[in-house]
Nucleic acid binder design. Structure first.
Length: 257
DNA sequence: ATGACGTCTTGTAGACGA
């Protein structure tokens, strides 16, 4: 099974690149984040023409998540919304079963700043994720998406520049570890323990071309699945070219059971 | 560098992103 996760920063603004991505990689499952559209505006028809079915949790101009799968393995939506989320009105969590695997696409709250109320909401959201992951533990599970956390300093282009900022704070990292402790593995780190590579770069000031990014988009896989990881990588090419998202997609390929 | 860019909105400037 080939799985991908990608924060597209508007699925409609990014539609040509999304279709290019499906054509290039032919993934079996794709988790999208920041679809930024109303439910009625989700581009089901264009995706169907490309051979994919989608389930989405679309909530208008902010956030929004979706899971795509090939039409012959159409995703069955299992849950829209994360139980215990501090912002239930925002589309930040969706689950589907694809090929016997429970897949969750998540867009974690940004947090804005350590002294902003949204930072507390981010920590509460991560706590709710850990509880949900614990509930789902024991069966094949992949939780992937934009975690808005760089797991370690190796995942930050300049840790000093992020001192006192969100995405790297100890309470966030601690909560990510609690999510992992339910039995999940950071796929990219499992495959590439020492590799410095990023998934997000600020649009401004040529950060992408200067290599100034963060690794905040993760594929977490349950132990059994992680043991079958054939590869897990970041496709920087989709951060290049016309109208790119500010995130690059992460791809993971699992050997058949 | 307090910015830079890109997305959205019953919009045309402000909010938000990370």
């Amino acid at each position: 099974m080939k799985l991908a996760t990608w924060n597209v920063n508007s699925v409609n603004a990014r539609l040509p690149r999304v279709l290019e991505f499906l054509e290039t990689h032919g993934p079996d499952v794709v988790c999208l984040q920041e679809t930024k559209c109303e439910e009625a505006a989700f581009p089901h028809e264009a995706l169907a023409a490309a051979g994919y079915r989608a389930v989405d949790h679309s909530t208008g101009r902010w956030a929004g998540v979706a899971i795509l799968a090939r039409a012959d393995g159409a995703p069955a939506a299992e849950a829209r919304g994360l139980p215990g989320s501090p912002v239930p009105e925002e589309g930040r969590w969706i689950e589907a079963t694809v090929g016997g695997v429970r897949v969750a696409s998540v867009y974690v709250i940004n947090g804005r700043a350590l002294d902003d109320p949204m930072y507390g909401a981010k920590l509460a959201f991560l706590d709710a994720m850990a509880r949900r992951a614990a509930e789902l533990a024991g069966s094949p599970l992949v939780v992937c998406g934009d975690f808005n956390i760089a797991p370690a300093d190796i995942d930050v282009y300049d840790p000093a520049a992020f001192a006192g900022a969100t995405h790297v704070s100890e309470p966030e990292r601690e909560r990510l570890r609690a999510i992992l402790a339910t039995g999940l593995v950071d796929g990219f780190r499992r495959v590439a323990p020492d590799t410095v590579q990023h998934t997000w770069w600020d649009y401004r000031a040529g950060h992408f071309h200067k290599g100034m990014g963060l690794r905040i988009d993760l594929v977490l896989a349950s132990e059994g699945l992680a043991g079958r990881l054939r590869s897990c990588g970041i496709d920087r090419d989709f951060r290049k070219g016309p109208k790119p998202s500010d995130h690059a997609p992460v791809l993971a390929e699992f050997e058949p059971a």
